[in-house]
Deep mutational scan, measured.
Amino acid sequence: KVILLEDVKGLGKKGDVVEVKDGYARNFLIPQGLAVEATKGNLKEL
C-alpha cells in the first residue's frame, strides 16, 4: 500500500491510500515523488 502525494490518473487523488504492485510503487511512484509507503508513521501524518 502507498499514500499518494499527488493526484495520479487512474489510481486516485492526493492523500488516498491505495494498493499497488510492489514493483510499480518502488520503480515508478516513489522515485517520481508521487507516493510514499503506507507505514504506520506515514498514516499518522495524514
Rank of each mutant, 00 (worst) to 15 (best):
T39W: 03
G33P: 00
E6C: 10
P31I: 13
V18S: 01
G23F: 11
A38D: 07
K40L: 14
G15I: 00
G12V: 00
E37V: 13
G15C: 09
A38M: 08
L29R: 00
E6F: 12
E37S: 09
A38E: 07
G33V: 02
G15S: 04
D22R: 07
V36M: 10
G12D: 00
D16Q: 13
T39Q: 07
V36T: 07
D7I: 04
A25K: 07
V20A: 03
E45R: 07
F28E: 15
E6W: 09
L29C: 03
D16M: 10
G12S: 01
V17F: 07
L34E: 02
E45N: 14
N42G: 07
R26F: 12
L46K: 15
D7A: 09
R26E: 14
G12K: 00
R26W: 12
L29P: 04
Q32S: 13
V36C: 10
Y24A: 04
V36K: 12
D16T: 11
P31R: 12
R26C: 08
K13L: 10
I30V: 12
G41S: 14
V18D: 00
K40C: 14
N27V: 05
K14S: 07
V18G: 00
K40Y: 11
N42Y: 03
A25D: 11
L4K: 00
E19W: 14
N27C: 12
G23Q: 12
V36S: 06
A38T: 09
G41D: 15
G41M: 07
N42H: 08
K13N: 10
G12N: 00
L46I: 15
G15V: 00
I30T: 03
V8N: 01
V8Y: 05
D16F: 06
E19F: 14
A25Y: 04
D16L: 06
I3N: 02
L34Y: 05
N42F: 04
L46C: 15
V20E: 02
V36G: 03
V8W: 03
L43H: 06
K14L: 06
L4P: 00
K13F: 10
K14Q: 11
K1L: 10
G41T: 15
F28C: 09
E19M: 13
D7E: 11
L43G: 08
V8M: 09
G23W: 13
Y24T: 05
F28W: 09
L5W: 03
G41P: 10
L34I: 10
K21D: 09
Q32E: 14
L4F: 01
L29I: 02
A38G: 05
D22V: 12
L11N: 01
A38I: 06
G10E: 07
L11Q: 02
I3P: 00
L29S: 00
K13I: 11
E37R: 09
F28R: 06
G15Y: 09
G15L: 05
P31H: 14
L46W: 02
G41C: 14
Y24G: 02
E6P: 00
K44R: 08
D7G: 05
L34N: 02
P31Q: 14
R26Y: 11
L4S: 00
E45Q: 13
G15N: 08
F28T: 12
D16Y: 06
K44W: 03
E6H: 14
T39Y: 04
I3E: 05
V2S: 01
T39C: 08
K21T: 13
L4C: 01
K1Q: 13
K40G: 09
Q32C: 15
L43K: 08
G41Y: 01
L5H: 03
A35T: 01
L34G: 01
Y24I: 09
V17T: 08
A38Y: 12
D22A: 11
A38L: 07
V17E: 07
E19I: 13
V2Q: 01
L46V: 15
Q32W: 08
G15Q: 02
Q32Y: 12
K9G: 13
E45C: 09
K44P: 15
V17N: 04
K1M: 08
L46H: 15
K9E: 12
E19G: 09
D16K: 04
N27P: 00
I3Q: 07
E37Q: 11
I3Y: 06
P31V: 15
N42C: 08
K21R: 11
P31N: 15
Y24V: 09
P31S: 15
I30H: 02
L34P: 01
G41N: 14
Y24K: 03
V18L: 09
V36Q: 10
K44G: 15
N27S: 13
F28K: 06
K40A: 14
L29G: 01
Y24E: 08
K40Q: 15
L29H: 01
A35W: 01
D22H: 09
P31D: 15
L46S: 15
Q32D: 10
K1R: 12
K9T: 12
K14V: 07
N27D: 14
N27Q: 12
V18P: 01
K9P: 15
E19D: 12
D16S: 09
L29W: 02
L11P: 00
K13E: 09
V20H: 01
G10N: 12
V8A: 02
P31A: 15
G23I: 12
D7F: 08
N27R: 10
V8T: 03
K21S: 14
K13H: 14
K13V: 08
V2W: 09
G15D: 05
N27H: 11
D16I: 04
Y24N: 03
N42P: 06
A25T: 05
D16C: 10
A35P: 01
K14C: 08
K40D: 15
L46G: 15
Y24M: 06
E37Y: 15
E19S: 10
Q32A: 14
N42A: 11
L34M: 11
E37H: 10
F28H: 13
I30R: 01
V20G: 02
G41E: 15
P31L: 14
G33C: 09
G23D: 14
A38K: 05
V18W: 02
A25R: 03
G15A: 03
E37L: 13
K44F: 03
F28V: 14
G15T: 02
E6K: 12
P31G: 15
E6M: 14
Y24F: 13
A38Q: 07
I3D: 01
L29T: 01
V17M: 09
V18A: 04
G12L: 00
I30E: 06
G41A: 15
K40P: 15
G15E: 02
K40T: 14
D7W: 06
E45L: 03
K21H: 13
V36D: 04
G33W: 03
G23V: 10
E19R: 09
K40N: 13
K14T: 08
Q32F: 10
K9D: 09
L5V: 07
